[in-house]
Simulated scan of single mutants.
Amino acid sequence: MQDRITYRVNEVLALTGLSRSTLYRLVAQGELPLVKVCGRTLIARDDLEAMVQRMRQSPPPVSAGRPSGKNRPMPA
């Protein structure tokens, strides 16, 4: 990333490839704090990098839906 210490929401979306709804879901879950400065919503580079590190270290979520593919049970 660049030498900047904060990014605007649209910049974070472009950098990460996340959708706006996913970004705000991460904010609501406490994964990514926002910083308000003079009416602007910003995301600190350090917070973004820390979130990515946490995501890389955590196991993928387990799906609670129906099994798919080869693991699907055969009908009786």
Rank of each mutant, 00 (worst) to 15 (best):
S58Y: 09
Q2W: 15
T16A: 12
T22W: 09
A64H: 13
D3C: 09
P67C: 12
S58W: 04
Q29N: 13
M55P: 00
I5M: 07
V12C: 06
L26I: 02
R72F: 07
T6Q: 07
M1Y: 12
G39W: 02
I5V: 14
R72N: 11
A44Y: 08
N10S: 13
S58E: 15
L48N: 03
R8F: 01
R54L: 10
R56Q: 14
L42I: 07
L26E: 13
S63M: 12
R72M: 07
L26C: 12
T16R: 00
T16E: 05
S63E: 02
R40H: 10
T6H: 09
L13M: 09
V62Y: 11
R56K: 01
G39Y: 05
V62Q: 06
N10F: 10
P59G: 10
V27E: 02
Y24K: 02
P75A: 15
S21C: 08
R40F: 08
A14E: 08
E49N: 12
S68K: 11
N71Y: 05
D3I: 07
G69P: 00
Q2M: 12
R25L: 12
T22K: 04
L18G: 04
L26T: 00
P59W: 06
L34C: 11
T6S: 05
Q57Y: 07
S21Q: 02
P75Q: 10
S68G: 11
S58A: 14
R66K: 14
L42N: 00
L26F: 09
M51E: 04
V35S: 11
P33N: 03
K70L: 01
Q53R: 15
T6L: 08
V12R: 13
M51A: 09
G17W: 01
L42G: 05
L23V: 08
P67G: 13
A76D: 04
R54V: 10
S19Q: 14
R56Y: 08
L32H: 03
G65L: 13
M55L: 13
Y7C: 04
P60I: 11
L18A: 07
R20D: 01
L18S: 05
V35H: 13
L26D: 11
P61C: 03
K70S: 08
V12D: 02
Q29L: 15
Q57I: 06
G30I: 11
C38N: 14
A44P: 00
S21Y: 01
L48Y: 08
L15V: 08
A44W: 11
K36V: 10
K36F: 13
Y24N: 01
G69R: 15
I5W: 00
N10G: 05
E11N: 10
P60L: 15
L34E: 03
T6F: 10
Y7W: 06
